[in-house]
Design a protein around this nucleic acid. Structure first.
Lengths: 154, 154
DNA sequence: AGGCTGGATTTAAAAACCGAACTTATCCAG
DNA sequence: CTGGATAAGTTCGGTTTTTAAATCCAGCCT
């Protein structure tokens, strides 16, 4: 049952902690739901809006923030016979959140799914067996959670 | 540069999506910062408060929500010669978020760190080389992000 | 009893959120 | 060329949530 040892303060002060910075940037209900939708392929303002059901003003602000932060890129697309419209496409930075959101999906499947089979799962291309979030060493071999050691300062 | 294909709606409606449920539960700045601190070993009300700098009323509410959801367990500890106090300890559910938050830390290190060396990193016990969050198949072998395939319905 | 300490609650001001209506810009039809 | 349709985004009220500070509360210690 090995617990995490008690501390009075976290070893990394929040203002230099990149986790805290990440939380400041994307740790917000609407922002996370936007990223979820974007990772599924949603790109357009009204599609985000009807997917999320949030006020347009909130959506507008969040999209702007994500574009400014470089997670989304505002491009212009043009369907034939239609006028040009903006679309919000994930950049490399935004795409690299995919493992994290998939990990969170599986966490939700395990603990919040009320025994239902998960509506979506993930496999390795060309295989049928499921994959899961875990830690690996430099050689790509799994490291069990109780083997993880934090190292400060570098 | 393979993009995610355009869709008008996500394939999993938000109300049956366990990612959306997880976001509802923990997708909030203060909640995430509480979990961050808890994963570092913070357990006491005042320690959380001085770590986060948030209003006590907000902290109180968020802790209650996390206890109700089963991520934290409210126990009582007693230092010798002191009165018993509650402490908020991560349950198995809460602990299993660790890979996700470490993943987010490393995402922040990569994109938000402004070229600084990360203040904290993670290694395998008894080793010096870094580990990282990733996906593995059933045999514990790494699966690269571009190999991940979503599978609907079960 | 009286003080200390770790938490919780109250309160009023500030901020964020919400829904609906409104503006803008371009394409298409007549 | 005019009018309508459509998608994007803003404006505008009213309502809810946050915030920060002060106050309250309960148990243990001397």
């Amino acid at each position: 049952m090995s617990q995490i040892p008690l501390v009075r303060r976290s070893p990394v002060p929040p203002d230099t902690c990149n986790l805290a910075k990440a939380i400041d940037l994307i740790g917000d209900r609407w922002t996370l739901l936007i990223l979820r939708a974007a990772l599924y392929g949603v790109r357009r303002f009204d599609d985000f809006q009807s997917e999320l059901g949030c006020p347009r003003t909130v959506l507008s602000g969040r999209l702007k923030k994500l574009v400014d932060a470089g997670l989304l890129t505002k491009k212009s697309y043009k369907a034939p016979g239609k006028r040009a419209r903006p679309e919000y496409v994930l950049s490399a930075i935004g795409l690299s959140l995919r493992p994290i959101l998939i990990g969170l999906t599986q966490w939700g499947d395990a603990w919040l799914g009320q025994g239902e089979a998960p509506p979506i799962s993930f496999t390795k291309a060309g295989s049928k067996s499921a994959i899961r979030a875990a830690f690996v060493d430099v050689e790509g071999r799994e490291v069990r959670p109780d083997q993880i050691r934090p190292v400060l300062r570098g």
